[in-house]
Design a protein around this nucleic acid. Sequence first.
DNA 1: CTCAAATAGCTTAGCGCTGAGATACATTGC
DNA 2: GCAATGTATCTCAGCGCTAAGCTATTTGAG
Lengths: 165, 165
Amino acid sequence: MADHVDRVLKQWAAQRPDLDVSPMAVLGRLKRLSRLVEAETGRTFNAHGLDAASFDVLATLRRSDAPHRLTPAELMRSSMVTSGAITQRLDRLEARGLVSRSPSASDGRSVVVALTDAGRALIDEALPDHVATSAGLLAALTKEERDTVATALRTLLESLGDGKG
Amino acid sequence: MADHVDRVLKQWAAQRPDLDVSPMAVLGRLKRLSRLVEAETGRTFNAHGLDAASFDVLATLRRSDAPHRLTPAELMRSSMVTSGAITQRLDRLEARGLVSRSPSASDGRSVVVALTDAGRALIDEALPDHVATSAGLLAALTKEERDTVATALRTLLESLGDGKG
DNA sequence: CTCAAATAGCTTAGCGCTGAGATACATTGC
DNA sequence: GCAATGTATCTCAGCGCTAAGCTATTTGAG
């Protein structure tokens, strides 16, 4: 029973026995799994005329309190992409009529992004599918295993400063 | 004690209590952690004049049996990127004199990619740094926790077909 | 042997993101 | 009140990747 990373670790043990490459057992799998998960969830997004970037923005708006409005700066902090990326994501979503931009009343520099009715309808339609896809991706683990992994990943995220950012 | 994903889960519980979003406790953290790890390891690569893509190719060659030769197709299967991406990665590495391409003796369609002396020197210099960075990223977990996570991630990868591919 | 199907590698248009920088407005310290 | 600093958003050139498609070669079924 060996996955790709097991083979990689074995190769390193043969070629560089002086190095302790055990961190790769976690980080190598994290990277590969992340890619596979992105590919699979991406298919669900596509089925609803979306991609991961658009879904990310719509879902972030949707889960914020009604009336589902956030500024580009808030979207940026939630998404881990640069301000330029948010501008472009919003350009695309606005062109499709899924979000609206209006000037902020309280801050002359800022903009308020809101879900339109069409945007809200689309994300509410895509969400259950996305959740089902996500559950399917984790089906190989028991609930206890999922909790253990979630807890460990949270510990790592907190140690890296995610949570205050 | 709450990280970004805890807040997201709480928002979903308030906005869509009908959905079981618990898979996001794992997948949301996987995504964020993956991004943070990429950013941090990327800094180490940069410090050696590399990026993740170049390091990936050089490391894959380096850990294969001496004389560290692989075909583009083998590099492609190891890296989870398309053949076009491999062509371009090799173009860049070849231009810098870090790898060489020569026609395969046994298959007229194929090419053999080899680490040059300079390429091998560079990857051998960068590797210990990368391993140290990787270990640092996991410092918040005990060895037992790291093993538990690695095992769970392997289970997931195998369930998704990684390992036979 | 032959020819259709599979495989290897390369090409290129288009895409989303980054990084650097510009502009406008807000806040802070004096 | 005002200058200096910080913040919010947008712009855009450049980058690496994908997807689709091309050529050349190998494989395998009949």
